[in-house]
Amino acid sequence: MKKSTNRISVLKTYKLYIGGQFPRTESGRSFAALDAKGNKIANLCLASRKDSREAIVAARAALGGWSQRAASNRGQILYRIAEMLEARKDQFIAELQLQGLSRSAALLETNGAIDRWIYYAGWCDKFQALFSTVNPVASSHYNFSVCEPMGVVAIFAPASPLLGLVSVLAPCLAGGNTAVVLADETKSLCSISLAEVLNSSDVPGGVVNILTGSKTELLPWIAEHRDVNALAYTQRDHTTLSSLKTKATGNLKRVIHWPFTDWSVNKAQSPHLIMDLQEIKTTWHPIQQIAGSGASY
């Protein structure tokens, strides 16, 4: 058979990821993803505020199932994400190069992201034992503090297109939260490809929702949404940060600021980052005052 040289290439449509589905934006709008030289690589969905609302509804619906899942099972699923990412490594390296990274930088970014999922997979069922406490109190109560996920976390993703995104998403999921991610505008390709990995890794639909679009447009709607429990911000723009903090007051959202520029450093992975997205619940349980009885058991 004669080899055809003028085959029309099939370009991927990058869509949103909401509730385990890949819908186009309801607004029908798009924007161009550019490579390092400013050439158009693909059209991306320019998500509307209604898309962000759908994503938050999906994240809320998924929260019960995800947070009540056995912690060890969450660990298995995070590990599975790493496996699937490893299997599609070449795709991510190519995509990162397309967006202007050198081959070695793309390799570092991808390997770093895979290792980060592994790192947090391990922490899923261990951080509770480390951070929960039995508290000494001066009354006949058993008093203990345990970690609980904050709930729906809105993540304004860092510019590091893969490792940075994973570094924020992984501790969020490890702690049993669900997430709505607004990908960084400049390098959004990998975030949608990551959604494909998540979708084939036993992550239940709605646990992670990924939007591509304009931060200026969507940020106020997400930050004011009453059904979001926490905002994770990663850039150093303090005007945006303080505007987030103001808008978060409506329902007293937590605003978490992780201003890393280099996400490959060791400091960018820590169980303390899981704890940043946990609430502490303290319970007073009445007991017989054993110590007071004088028994030296």
Binding site: R53, W221, E224, R226, D227, N251
Partner: peptide
């Protein structure tokens, strides 16, 4: 109120 709501309220 101009912002999306939560069933909690």
């Amino acid at each position: 109120e101009g912002c999306y709501q939560s069933a909690n309220y």
